[in-house]
Nucleic acid binder design. Structure first.
Length: 611
RNA sequence: GCGCGUUUAGCUCAGCUGGAUAGAGCGUUGGCCUCCGGAGCCAAAGGCCACAGGUUCGAAUCCUGUAACGCGCACCA
């Protein structure tokens, strides 16, 4: 199908070029798209209308030229000019049937290596050490993992990097809290849960001490609250202690280093449990701490190249009205498109920006990336625009994409780790499996206990993933249990069910010794023909997802495919059809199963032969 | 205040980057063959595409403004 539309598009463009004489401004290929309605045929070309205006010629004249050029094409049964200047194309049934048979014979279902020779580094999930993964992490993890698979499926050389938060000021606090309040039994049972408890306790204690201090100062300045609070007045003692421990850690103190390593190792185990349940994997876990030793060099380099300058004691990059890095010679402008970007704090410390520049350099240099995708929530858009501008100024020319998604929030506001007011990913997955296991028992009473649990696992996890993947990633999501765990309608179980029904048919055919191979496919009914056309759309759908990083497009495709199959299934007997039709329908059915399974695999969703 | 984003059926969302009469799921209502699996299928009802202008053969889609909501805006990540 892709080869066909490309071929038709080129022929159409050539016809117009010769008609209009000058190929000036003419695309090399006209867009050939799916027809909007059955009456319009299978494909249509809409580009003649805008071109006609540009060329000051009647649109129908151009459309007619295109139609004449395509007339007689072996794939086409009919070409017609319609309306003000549309070109409607009707495919020959034989061509559709033959193309479908070719797709069935192809182990990759028609997917092409559009990413061949390109290495893409994808950064997703990236949880923070010592904090449990919660529903705020699920979109990055699941969307990132799906993109990982999709990109690999179209020939990219993909490197997945889990950029975990394993460095920063929280470690000073954790070390203090751990030494004061550790409950060893609780830690042994659930290290990350205990670390979270310790962190929360630290924050509460810090707040309490601060309160005492304010009281002692007898409301010296009541309305301070918001502004540049902490700067004035001494910090609470516990915070001072945390800062000292942090400095010791940074200086390489062996006891603190050991604790830090322990926190990371135990957290990674907890993350890995979740990843195993989700089928998510990474090539590297290059957390923030990886870059510690490089940071002074990064800042020095930025200074040397005139990107960063001294400002209020910090090293800062400024931007111009276009959003490009401002050369050091120029004074900062009021109309700057982006706010200042601090790459080194006034106390000499480094921050997120410094680490990310180092990360970028490593990915471009050592990892040889030709495209970098970073999957995070919407709050970091500004940060990455600044970062990418700095990277470009440093000579990075590869594609840098911030694949952002809408924040997941609860009905009453955003997720707040500090209050511990979150739904942990583990709870979510447990509940998903629990509900799906109950449903499995209702729908399949003949299943054994073990089978029921397995069905519940696959269906429950699938439902959770699909729920996130099927919405445009930029949509804001308000979490509710019932929506996240829905099992009816446009959901993973619907697709899994369609697959299981097909497997049931194929199983019965196999019992009769029938082998479904690359039979001739014949499309006797409009429903069969429609189903075949849907199947042929698989490669372009996957390529589109790889290009635009929008997995919901694949979800929509699979849902429509399953719907097309359900329609077919309802009134097209397969096993009971006469032999010639039966072979063709079996082949079509087999192909639907393969596309469903492969598409769901790319989304990270498993399928079952029975459910 | 500035920036980014969002606004489509009662609810949750698509809408293929400007095409022909705006589509799904949930919910509601009514149907489904003694026949390959009813987690399914078919049908009905439900729309001023936030609002106001503009661009053109044509706008949910592009441009401007307004409103509401979300997020962000130097030394957290």
């Amino acid at each position: 199908m892709l080869d066909l539309t490309s071929d038709l598009g080129q022929r159409a463009a050539r016809a117009l070029a010769s008609l209009l004489g000058s190929p000036e401004g003419l695309p090399a290929e006209m867009a050939v798209v799916r027809a909007g309605k059955p009456e319009f045929g299978d494909l249509q070309i809409n580009g003649c209308l805008p071109l006609a205006k540009q060329a000051k010629r009647p649109p129908r004249e151009l459309a007619t030229a295109v139609a004449q050029a395509l007339e007689g094409h072996p794939a086409l049964a009919k070409v017609e000019v319609a309306g003000p200047g549309f070109v409607n194309l009707h495919l020959r049934d034989e061509w559709v049937a033959a193309a479908t048979a070719r797709q069935l014979a192809d182990g990759r279902l028609g997917l092409r290596d559009v990413g061949r020779g390109q290495r893409v580094v994808i950064d997703y999930s990236s949880p923070n050490v010592a904090k449990p993964m919660h529903i705020g992490h699920i979109r990055s993890t699941i969307v990132g993992s799906a993109l990982h698979r999709v990109l690999a499926a179209v020939g990219y050389d993909v490197i997945a990097d889990n950029h975990i938060g394993d460095w920063g000021t929280q470690f000073g606090k954790l070390i203090v809290a751990y030494r004061r309040w550790l409950d060893p039994a609780a830690y042994a049972a659930d290290p990350v849960g205990e670390l979270l408890r310790l962190y929360v306790k630290f924050v509460a204690e810090e707040k309490r001490e601060r309160g005492e201090m304010v009281d002692a100062h007898a409301h010296a300045h009541e309305e301070e609250a918001e502004g540049e609070e902490e700067a004035q007045g001494p910090a609470p003692p516990i915070l001072e202690e945390a800062r000292r421990e942090l400095v010791k850690l940074q200086a390489g103190d062996s006891e603190n280093r050991a604790l830090w390593r322990k926190f990371i190792a135990d957290s990674r185990h907890a993350f890995q449990e979740i990843y195993d349940r989700l089928g998510v994997r990474f090539d590297y876990w290059l957390g923030e701490s990886t870059y510690n030793d490089l940071l002074p060099t990064v800042v020095a380099e930025l200074g040397r190249r005139g990107i960063a300058r001294d400002s209020r004691g910090a090293q800062v990059a400024f931007f111009d009205e276009q959003g490009e890095v401002l050369p050091r010679e120029r004074e900062p402008v009021e109309e700057a498109k982006l706010p200042p970007f601090i790459v080194q704090k006034s106390d000499g410390g480094f921050n997120y920006a410094t680490t990310d520049i180092a990360t970028m350099s490593l990915r471009v240099g050592l990892l040889g990336a030709s495209r970098i995708l970073i999957v995070t929530d919407e709050r970091q858009q500004l940060h990455f625009r600044q970062l990418f501008a700095v990277a470009r100024r440093m000579g990075v020319t590869i594609a840098l994409e911030h694949v952002w998604f809408g924040l997941m929030r609860m009905a009453d506001g955003t997720i707040k780790t500090r209050e511990g007011n979150v739904i942990h990913l583990r709870e979510l997955l447990d509940e998903a499996e629990r509900r799906a296991t109950i449903a499995a028992g209702e729908h399949g009473p003949e299943l054994s206990e073990a089978e029921r649990r397995e069905v519940g696992r696959v269906v429950g996890i699938g439902a959770v993933k699909y729920n996130d993947l099927s919405k445009d990633r930029q949509t804001l999501v308000t979490f509710t249990w019932d929506k996240a765990l829905a099992l009816q309608g446009n959901t993973a179980p619907y697709l899994q069910y369609a697959y299981a029904r097909i497997r049931s048919i194929l199983r019965k055919a196999a019992e009769g010794g029938e082998i479904v191979g690359a039979q001739t496919i014949s499309l006797g009914t409009p429903v069969e023909r429609e189903l075949a056309k849907r199947l042929l759309g698989y490669p372009e759908t996957v390529e589109q997802v790889a290009r635009t990083c929008r997995p919901h497009v694949l979800c929509d495709y699979l849902f429509e495919l399953a719907g097309a199959f359900s329609g077919f299934y309802a009134d097209h007997p397969v096993l009971k059809a006469e032999p010639a039709v039966r072979a063709s329908r079996l082949a079509l059915t087999e192909l639907v199963a393969r596309v469903l399974r492969d598409g769901l695999r790319l989304l990270g969703i498993e399928v079952l032969d029975r459910m």
